[in-house]
Design a protein around this nucleic acid. Structure first.
Lengths: 231, 231
DNA sequence: ACCTGAACACCGTTCAAGT
DNA sequence: ACCTGAACACCGTTCAAGT
């Protein structure tokens, strides 16, 4: 807002709440760019969730006017698309590439995929409504190549890929949606025990209290891989 | 709007569809109720998608003032929660209940689950952000009971349940998000073939063109079940 | 080429009332 | 108990301009 007059601005004019960036910082922002917009959108999403991403708020963080964004970006949907894909970049560990252990590679790729999404919980809730960006396609390509090299016939490849993809997406989605606030969790827990007569089995196995998400993911993935390619 | 004056109204009063509802039609609505609100919300979601559900629009369809909804419902989020769970009701075929074929039962339950969600494509995109309603819990309970009766040890039960759940949620999410408009599909297809050098494997297996979603689901589920409980 | 404020259309929800 | 319109706060985006 103030901006405009370039000179030496004093202080306190920004103050973005949860993550304050002081005026001094804001007054000397680098110029707007798509990269900066996307990176800041990810920050904002991390901090405030899907509903927290507002164009005006994003512009604030960037130290620009709200409308400036629209020169770089078509609309808000595009910001979502770009933010989602940017979070799914895959940096393959070089040494693994030539490994013979295809199963280990696959497990590593999928655990990394899941971890990337859990680092940004909003990504799971965004995925269902978004198009495939280059990073997602890149992951699918790498997964396909690995399975193909491992000897899976082309005819079975698509089923295998989709099964693994489904598993990862489902696991991430579920994990993220169970990551409730403490209040929500307490409420849900209470409601469930209150209804334990209606759901005796899942109550007995403590399905909803089982916190070993990582272990469940790993074990389930092993089962799936056993089915896909029995060793 | 008009409403109020009670007299003897003639006929034709529903007509939901794509639809304008004329004043006359609207004037003889039954009174508001939570059931009617939820059912109409589902209709609206089916017709217009997640973004099409606006409180004012919903009220229009119900022939009531926009603010009347707030007596029955806390806020819009609650409408989403209720609509989602209402679509996931499970009517178990009674004859199957005593069957010995647990694997057949599980497959049936999961295919029904998937089918229910695909009938309302918005449900997949809503799921990640919603709490578990009674119908979802009911499905989880039934699934647990079936697997438990089939001999799966309690210690393995949670992994099995989550794996199957993940698979269904992932498959549904993916399927729904690939169900693009023709324009979108054409654009995506074009972009992919243009980039075929970067994604040779998934291009070769036609991963993104494979339209046999039902078959892939069934086969993938079989693989997963093979892994979970080898026959 | 890049950025801007004013203004518009729209939407969820509060409020003070009505019956 | 149930429903209502007016009004408010907020948000995405168009537009006509600025540099």
């Amino acid at each position: 807002m103030a901006a405009k007059r370039g000179g030496a601005q004093s202080k306190r004019s920004q103050r973005t709440a949860a993550s304050p960036r002081s005026v001094q910082e804001a007054s000397r922002e680098p110029p707007l760019s798509l990269e900066r917009i996307v990176a800041t959108a990810v920050e904002l999403l991390d901090a405030e969730g899907v509903d927290g991403l507002k164009m005006r708020r994003l512009a604030d963080r960037l130290g620009s006017g709200a409308m400036s964004l629209y020169w770089h970006v078509g609309n808000k949907e595009e910001v979502f698309d770009l933010a989602l894909d940017s979070v799914l970049e895959y940096r393959a560990p070089p040494q693994i590439i030539e490994s013979q252990d295809w199963r280990g590679e696959v497990v590593h790729m999928l655990e990394d995929w899941r971890a990337s999404m859990l680092r940004h919980p909003w990504s799971a809730s965004l995925l269902p409504r978004r198009a495939l960006g280059p990073n997602i396609l890149g992951r699918l390509e790498l997964l396909s190549k690995t399975l193909s090299r491992a000897g899976v016939a082309d005819a079975d490849l698509n089923v295998a890929i989709w099964s693994l993809w489904n598993f990862v997406i489902g696991a991430t989605t579920t994990r993220a949606s169970f990551d409730l606030s403490d209040d929500d969790r307490a409420a849900a827990q209470q409601r469930l025990t209150r209804l334990s007569e209606r759901y005796p089995t899942i109550e007995r196995t403590r399905l909803l209290l089982d916190n070993d998400w990582d272990g469940a993911f790993r074990k389930g993935l092993d089962f799936l891989l056993d089915g896909l390619a029995p060793r």
